Simulated scan of single mutants.
Amino acid sequence: MSFVQIRRDLHKIPELGFQEYKTQSYLLNYLKSLPQKRMRIETWKTGIFVRIEGLNPRKTIGYRADMDGLPIVEETGLPFLSEHPEKMHACGHDFHMSIALGLITHFLNEPIDDNLLFIFQPAEEGPGGAEPMLQSEIMNDWKPDMILALHIAPEYPVGSIAVKEGLLFANTSELFIDLTGKGGHAAYPHQTNDMVVAACSLVTQLQTIVARNVNPLDSAVITIGKISGGTVQNIIAEKARVEGTIRTLSVESMEKVKKRILSIVRGIEVGYECEAKIDFGSSYYQVYNEGKLTREFMEYVRNDTNVEVIECEKAMTGEDFGYMLKEIPGFMFWLGADSRYGLHHSKLNPKEDAIDVAISMLSKYIHYKGTKSE
């Protein structure tokens, strides 16, 4: 079976975070079809650890592939369209898993000196699987000495990668704020505490944080993507909910932004005589590529493969792989996939040639790292 076909099979069965039961089963069935002599498999919730024993191990090289899909209605029109209503692999995790399986297959047939650890991680899109997986007993026993991962990039052509040393992706946090006041008849506003008005005021004040509380030489984003409140047009709303996301390029700015949000919400409670509850939801640590390993990787790809290396800029996207890089030296890179539509879009359609490009490039690089004297 080709790895393109595997990608298509996985594309049909997208599942949300920690619900990847069919996906896990599919991966396990494939893994069981491979030579078992040097491979050990352990499951963790809906994720999987795959350890391949080296011939003369001195270290362990780790590789992470995320598994979950998104709550999006697919509109690609592909013949292998999602079979799960209102769910789609709109972030390329079907590509990521297929590439990982390709690498496992390669190294079971072409062994290297060092041990390899492949991590199929659930819930990258939320609520976050990397941090708890990192803290598991299995990871403690098999913890790699270095780790890498990729993410497809629709904006780059197939046959290229984009990467940089240092900060690649931002710190991120979800934001949910619930306001509760006193509702009532639209004709008697003086007898109520209108939560639609309170929510509107809150959103306006939140937008002052980046402009007035974050260093202009730093970067931060507060985006409110959803406001809900009220029931019908002639009833003053008793409740309102504000949902958004926070992105910062430094840990310190994330802490400052959250502290300022708490202060503003306390002011809303006093000013509008209401109660507020704040939930920062899933927070992801920045993706920070270790300098020496990243430089070495870039140099190897330039000199020993046909893949183009593009030095990219940091981005405000988030990835919970940052938690793994916080504990283990390594890096993440963008894999060119050339799609007209971007990540998290209902019409995302990356070119499948990128799968073989990644398997070929990474098998060579990992072979180089797994036989090189340090």
Score class of each variant (00 low, 15 high):
45 K>R: 08
45 K>W: 00
46 T>D: 07
46 T>N: 12
48 I>L: 04
48 I>Q: 05
50 V>T: 15
50 V>M: 10
52 I>R: 08
52 I>E: 12
52 I>H: 10
54 G>E: 09
54 G>K: 12
55 L>T: 15
55 L>R: 11
56 N>M: 11
57 P>D: 14
57 P>M: 13
58 R>A: 04
59 K>V: 01
59 K>C: 06
60 T>V: 07
63 Y>V: 03
63 Y>P: 04
64 R>M: 12
65 A>L: 01
65 A>M: 05
67 M>Y: 03
68 D>L: 06
69 G>C: 10
69 G>R: 06
70 L>P: 05
71 P>F: 02
73 V>G: 00
73 V>E: 11
74 E>Q: 06
75 E>S: 04
77 G>Y: 10
78 L>C: 10
80 F>M: 14
80 F>P: 03
81 L>N: 09
81 L>C: 12
84 H>P: 00
85 P>Q: 08
85 P>K: 08
86 E>K: 13
86 E>S: 15
88 M>P: 11
89 H>Q: 05
90 A>C: 03
90 A>T: 09
91 C>D: 06
92 G>Y: 08
94 D>S: 06
95 F>D: 01
95 F>W: 07
98 S>H: 02
101 L>C: 15
103 L>M: 14
103 L>A: 11
105 T>A: 12
107 F>K: 10
108 L>E: 14
109 N>G: 15
110 E>Q: 15
110 E>I: 12
111 P>N: 11
113 D>W: 03
114 D>W: 01
114 D>Q: 01
114 D>I: 05
115 N>T: 10
117 L>R: 15
118 F>I: 12
119 I>L: 04
122 P>F: 00
123 A>N: 02
127 P>C: 04
128 G>R: 04
129 G>C: 11
131 E>W: 02
131 E>L: 13
133 M>D: 04
133 M>S: 02
133 M>Q: 02
133 M>I: 00
136 S>L: 07
137 E>H: 15
137 E>P: 05
143 K>D: 00
146 M>H: 01
147 I>T: 13
148 L>K: 08
149 A>N: 08
150 L>G: 09
151 H>S: 05
151 H>N: 07
153 A>Q: 13
154 P>H: 14
154 P>I: 08
156 Y>R: 11
157 P>A: 09
158 V>I: 11
159 G>R: 04
160 S>G: 02
160 S>Y: 01
161 I>R: 03
163 V>I: 15
164 K>C: 07
164 K>L: 13
165 E>N: 14
168 L>Q: 07
168 L>I: 03
168 L>D: 05
170 A>N: 05
171 N>I: 03
172 T>R: 04
174 E>G: 15
174 E>L: 15
175 L>G: 10
176 F>E: 12
176 F>H: 14
